[in-house]
Every structure is written in structure tokens, then in C-alpha cells.
Design a binder for these strands. Structure first.
Lengths: 201, 201
DNA sequence: GCATTTTGCTAACCGAGGGTCACTGAACTT
DNA sequence: AAGTTCAGTGACCCTCGGTTAGCAAAATGC
């Protein structure tokens, strides 16, 4: 035994701090907007100086990317769980899309669709794109399954259909703002049903 | 006669210059990204100094808004023309959506969807929103007409349907990049057909 | 035709904020 | 105890959006 158990190691501590920074940045970016948040403000909220942040990210944009990745992981996990449920492919697809939408409508996730995409520089694109592709593939596979089990139209093109459906659903993130009478869950249910309408068997 | 005709008046000249600035900025924002374009660069391309630009816009963000307005006008006009054609409401809706998509896929229009929305500050929102609302209304009216003339399903909800369809179509602007085998017109036709699928009578 | 104002622009500057660097003090290593 | 690693600091630089004083030329007034 080189150390007491129960205390985080140096590496773990470092990662915990990194996560805390990302969490803090996510909230601030999401509520105040990327442009309007200074690194100084983030640092101040964490009780350190700006320069300290550069131990955990290489630039402001990189910090945003880390926020994006965290959000994407959350999204992938929510959808994965929902898609793994019971029922026909159509039913599971519906659940997956609803999970996707509801997660996306969380206040601190809004920036994902509002701020992040344009900021993605060619260098960062790779890691972001893999999460996106993964989600895309999950939905596409479910569309395939729907053709096989007969719950979706046999003549649909999974690639095109997933673009259409995800487009419709992503758009919600743009136009939906809290305050209208309906809850995110209700909105998600309506939009998902509507987006899938043309594809049900 | 206070002046020779055929020469632009002071006011006209000023407006021409303004347009030229906006056109130049549009191209640069579209191809290089808002963040990466300095006012100095725009000014240099126009052969003036940065400060001169401030005679025609109040801030960099305002310049972006002027680009946005120009693009929106273009979009509204293209859609208006297409919607005014002959045929059933479904046919005209199809034409309108294709016009919308093709216009949106122009290289110098990409920034509209990639860069502008998040930059819109609450003050500017008004003017931008009116163009958006106008487009939305045009499509919604056409959906209404489709219910009336029987070319679209009688049970569709125009408000929800327009959000779904426009969402699907707007998404193209995000994922489409030149170079794939198909032309913008082909893409537009495919996506439009697919997005309308669930709503045809 | 001369004085006055208005206009379009420039040169020089300011300040915010992203990013860097030399250094420090504490903790781990040997 | 001496050396090494490392998180964090404070002072600094530089880019870039935005401002201001002033100038020359065109428009306007008398």
C-alpha cells in the first residue's frame, strides 16, 4: 500500500477538477452565451485565476469543445437507454427520439445547438463528429430494424429518413423556449409522433 | 433640374456603398466564419480603413445582421415566387420548399444557419424575427390551402407541420456540403419530397 | 465667389479579453 | 535533506472591436 484508500489520486483529482471546470463552463455558456462569458468570469466562479484554466484546456474554444463532448455523452447515453427498451422497432425509435429531444431541451444543453456548431474549427471537428455519427448510426439501425420487423414502411430509405427525422427534432431546440404551456416531455412526444408520421407501416 | 440625371445622388451613392460592404461581408463571413473575419480585413478588401465601416454599420454584430437581412430578403423572394406558381397547394408547397432549400444551400448563405442565429442579440432579434415569421406564415398558409383543396391530409396541424417540415429542410443546410455527387437541386427535391411524405392526401 | 456646414474618411488611440511565461510554494520522490 | 513535479499566480503581450480628433472635399448659404 503506497497510500490510504478512499482518497483520490493525483490523476483522479486532476480529472475531477477538469470536470468541475467543464460543468461550470457549460452552465455559463448555456445561460449567458459563449461570446458573453469571459475566461476570467469562469475562473472567478471557480476561485482561481484565468491562467489556471489553461492547465485543463488549451483554449477557450477547446473548453467549449469539452462542454460539447460532455453534452454529447449525456445525449448518447439517454438515447442508448431508451432505444434498448421493449416493443417494436417503431416504439423503441419513438422512445429514443423522445429521450433525445427531452435531453436536448434541458436549459444547459441549449447551447449545444445554438452556439457550438459554428464554433467548431476544422481541427476539433473530428471528435465532435464521432458523437454525432454515433447518434446517427443508432437511429439508422433502428430504422433498419423497423423495416425488418414490419413496424415501419418497407420502402423507406434509412439514411434519408434519419436526416429528415433528426432535422425535424433538432429544430425543436431552436424554436422551443420554456414558458409556453407545454412541458418538454409533451413537446417531445408531439414532435416525435409528427416526425415519424410518414414512416409508420 | 438641380443636377444631371444618370448620376447617383448622394443618398443613392451612400446606399450603394452600404450594399457593397454588406455583400463583401456576407461572402467573407460565409466562407471564413464570423469569428475569423476581422473588420480590418473587410475594410482592406474594400480599400478603406476600419473606421470608415462605422459610417455604414454601428457594430460588427450589426453588420452581420445586415447580411442576415439581405439573405432573408433573398430567401423570402425566392419562396414567394415559387409559391405563386400553378398547381395544387401540395405542388406549390413542394416548389416553395425546393426554392427555399436551393437558395439556402448557396455557399454564401450557409452562414445564415451556421453563424447568425446564436449571434442575434435581444435587441436585433426583432427585425430578424419578422423575416422568419413571414416565411413561416407563407408556408403555413400554403398548408392551410392544401387542406382546403384536398391535396394535403385534412387532419394535419399547420403550425406543427410547418415546424416539422422546415426543421427537416433547415437541417440540410447543416449537413450538406458541396462535393457529394448530387446537386443542390437534386438534394432539395429528395428532401422536400421526404419531408412532405406524411402530409400528402 | 466666399464663408459655413456637412460628409466621408483617416490616423492614432483605448480597453477588453484571449493567451503566454517566469516563477513560487507545496507535495511527492529518493 | 535535496531534487523533482505540478498546480497555480501575477504580470505581461497582442489582437481586435470600437472611439475620437481632425482634415479635405463636396454641398449649402449668403
Amino acid at each position: 500500500m503506497t497510500e490510504l484508500s478512499g482518497f483520490p489520486t493525483r490523476k483522479q483529482l486532476r480529472d475531477l477538477k477538469r470536470r468541475e471546470i467543464v460543468r461550470c463552463a457549460t452552465v455559463k455558456f448555456g445561460t449567458e452565451g459563449y461570446e458573453n462569458v469571459t475566461l476570467e468570469a469562469i475562473a472567478a466562479e471557480l476561485g482561481v485565476t484565468k491562467a489556471a484554466l489553461y492547465n485543463y484546456c488549451s483554449s477557450k474554444n477547446d473548453l467549449l469543445m469539452q462542454c460539447y463532448e460532455l453534452g454529447m455523452d449525456r445525449l448518447v447515453e439517454a438515447v442508448e437507454t431508451a432505444l434498448a427498451g421493449n416493443g417494436s422497432a417503431a416504439v423503441r425509435l419513438d422512445a429514443g427520439l423522445r429521450a433525445y429531444t427531452v435531453t436536448m431541451l434541458r436549459a444547459d444543453m441549449q447551447y449545444l445547438w445554438s452556439y457550438t456548431r459554428p464554433m467548431v474549427t476544422s481541427g476539433d471537428k473530428r471528435s465532435v463528429q464521432t458523437s454525432r455519427d454515433k447518434l446517427d448510426m443508432m437511429f439508422r439501425d433502428m430504422l433498419d430494424a423497423g423495416i425488418k420487423d414490419g413496424s415501419l414502411r418497407a420502402d423507406l430509405d434509412p439514411k434519408l429518413a434519419s436526416l429528415i427525422i433528426l432535422g425535424a427534432v433538432n429544430w425543436v431546440g431552436i424554436w422551443f423556449r420554456e414558458g409556453g404551456g407545454r412541458s418538454p416531455a409533451q413537446i417531445a412526444a408531439e414532435v416525435t409522433r409528427e416526425a415519424m408520421r410518414g414512416y409508420l407501416a
